[in-house]
């Protein structure tokens, strides 16, 4: 049985693909690894209500190996060349990626790291849940077109309900602190929406 609900290993499916890690400077360790730069940058923003995270490309480090760091043990590693990471940052400077030249094991600290890792898995789970709607043409088109047309006064009930639910979910993740409370609040939101609940039920049944 896995230690974390919504656990993802973060292990590369493609051994040549770059791997990104989220580095927390006060804890001096990585809290998550992922292949997706977009996901790493989204997590950085959602977690900015808690602390700074620096998106680091770790796969170019001189001692990186394909099986060296995954989400089970990422907190045991830190950057070896710290001056590559700026300590001051804008909360919204997510496109910036620090390329790490060297990785090194890190020491222990007295903060509950598992709690932080669990929170990131929660965020990833629900971000990817809503990402799946982008495979539907109407939703994807509306996401782009209404991004600038702003036709809020002319509704599209199904699409709007997804948008609204996504907004509420992201706000819960942005401001929330407790895993169980937040996760349950999101599930309750989804259950209250007929369309999305069916989608969610199908997904969970498939597992």
């Amino acid at each position: 049985m896995e230690k974390f609900k919504y656990f993802v290993i973060g292990y590369p499916s493609d051994s040549n693909a770059p791997i990104y890690a989220l580095y927390q400077p006060v804890l001096d360790c990585f809290l998550n690894v992922t292949e997706s730069l977009e996901l790493a940058q989204t997590i950085k923003l959602i977690l900015s209500s808690r602390y700074d995270l620096h998106v680091c490309c770790i796969s170019k480090a001189n001692n990186y190996k394909i099986n060296l760091i995954d989400n089970e043990i990422c907190e045991n590693w830190t950057i070896g060349d710290r001056n590559t990471v700026s300590l001051t940052s804008y909360p919204t400077d997510s496109p910036k990626v620090a390329t790490i030249k060297n990785l090194q094991p890190t020491g222990t600290n007295n903060w509950n790291i598992d709690q932080e890792k669990q929170w990131i898995f929660l965020c990833i789970h629900w971000i990817l849940f809503f990402k799946q709607f982008e495979q539907f043409t109407y939703y994807r088109d509306d996401l782009i077109l209404n991004g600038f047309l702003e036709l809020e006064s002319i509704g599209s009930s199904q699409i709007d309900s997804i948008h609204n639910l996504k907004k509420q979910t992201m706000k819960l993740l942005y401001l929330g602190l407790d895993f169980t409370t937040t996760d349950q609040a999101i599930i309750n939101l989804i259950k209250s929406n007929k369309l999305i609940n069916k989608f969610w039920q199908d997904l969970t049944r498939d597992r």
């Binding site: 927390q24 808690r50 602390y51 001051t88 940052s89 602190l177």
Partner: peptide
Amino acid sequence: DYYLKFKTKFLSL
């Protein structure tokens, strides 16, 4: 606890 433990400086946009 998070603000106390982790808040570092942001440059104001």
